[in-house]
C-alpha cells in the first residue's frame, strides 16, 4: 500500500497516467452530457406535480451531489498529505477546491431558481440550504487559505486541517432532509429503497451525475498537470516534454 501510494504520488508517473486518462474521461463526459440532456429535457415526461420545472433536477442534483463528492476528495487528499507528506495529494486538493466551490454555487443557485416556482421563495433558512451554504464557505475558506500563505506546503497543511474539520458538515447536508422538517423534498434516489422516480426520469439523472463527475475529473487533470509542470520544472523529464 505504502509503495503503491508513493508510486502513484510520483509526479512523473501521475503525469503520464493523467495524459492517457484525460482522453477517455473527456469522451465519457461529452457522451453523458449530450445523452443526459437529451433524455432529461426531451425524452423524460413532465412531472405530474411540478410540470416541466422539475427538469432543473438534471443540473441541480448532479451539482449538489458532486459538491459533496469533491469535498470528500478534498478532505481525503488533505488527510493523506498530512500523514504521508505527498506532493500530488496537495495538488489534487488545491485544484479541486475551486471546482467544488463552483458546483456548490450551482447547487445553491439552481436550487433557488427551482424554489421560486415550487415554494414561492428563492431562499429559506432551513437545514439543507443552510448546510449547503456552509459548504460553500468551507470551500471559499479553503481557497483563501491557499492564497494566504507564500509557502505552499504550509497552505496545504492548514487547508487540510480546515477540510477535515469541515467534513462534519457532509453527513449533516446528506441527512438534513430526514432529521429536520424542511421545505426541501426528500431524496430522489436512495441506496436502500427503490428510487422514487420513474426510470425515464432516472436514467438521464444518472447520466448527468456521471457527466458532472467526469467533468470534474477532466478539469482537475488539466489543472493538476499544469501544477506538476510548475513544481517539477527543473527535472529532466519536464525539460524533455517542454523541449518538444
Amino acid at each position: 500500500m505504502y509503495k503503491w501510494i508513493h508510486q502513484f504520488g510520483s509526479p512523473k508517473y501521475f503525469y503520464d497516467i493523467s495524459l492517457r486518462l484525460s482522453k477517455w474521461v473527456t469522451i465519457a463526459c461529452i457522451v453523458c452530457f449530450i445523452s443526459g440532456l437529451y433524455g432529461g429535457l426531451v425524452l423524460a415526461p413532465a412531472d405530474y406535480q411540478q410540470g416541466d420545472s422539475f427538469r432543473i433536477i438534471y443540473v441541480h442534483v448532479p451539482a449538489a451531489w458532486m459538491s459533496l463528492f469533491v469535498y470528500i476528495i478534498l478532505a481525503t487528499s488533505g488527510a493523506i498529505s498530512l500523514i504521508w507528506h505527498i506532493k500530488i495529494t496537495d495538488i489534487i486538493a488545491r485544484v479541486s477546491a475551486p471546482i467544488g466551490a463552483s458546483y456548490t454555487f450551482l447547487a445553491l443557485s439552481t436550487g433557488a431558481i427551482w424554489g421560486k416556482p415550487m415554494w414561492g421563495t428563492y431562499w429559506v433558512w432551513d437545514a439543507r440550504l443552510t448546510s449547503e451554504l456552509i459548504l460553500l464557505f468551507l470551500y471559499l475558506g479553503y481557497m483563501a487559505l491557499q492564497s494566504a500563505f507564500d509557502d505552499k506546503r504550509i497552505a496545504a497543511r492548514a487547508g487540510a486541517v480546515l477540510a477535515l474539520i469541515g467534513i462534519i458538515n457532509i453527513p449533516i447536508i446528506h441527512y438534513s432532509v430526514e432529521w429536520w422538517s424542511t421545505l426541501h423534498q426528500g431524496p430522489t434516489i436512495t441506496k436502500l429503497d427503490k428510487p422514487s422516480i420513474h426510470f425515464t426520469m432516472l436514467i438521464p439523472l444518472l447520466l448527468m451525475v456521471i457527466a458532472f463527475k467526469t467533468f470534474y475529473i477532466a478539469t482537475a487533470l488539466i489543472k493538476i498537470r499544469s501544477e506538476i509542470l510548475k513544481y517539477e520544472c527543473n527535472s529532466s523529464w519536464v525539460k524533455k516534454i517542454l523541449g518538444n
Binding site: 410540470g51 420545472s53 443540473v59 454555487f105 443557485s109 439552481t110 427551482w114
Partner: peptide, 21 residues
Amino acid sequence: GGYATYVWSAYGISFIVLFLN
C-alpha cells in the same frame, strides 16, 4: 410548460459556470 424562465436560467447558469471552469 410555462416554466421557461426558471428552467433555462438554471441551465444557462450551469453552462456558464462549467464553461468558465
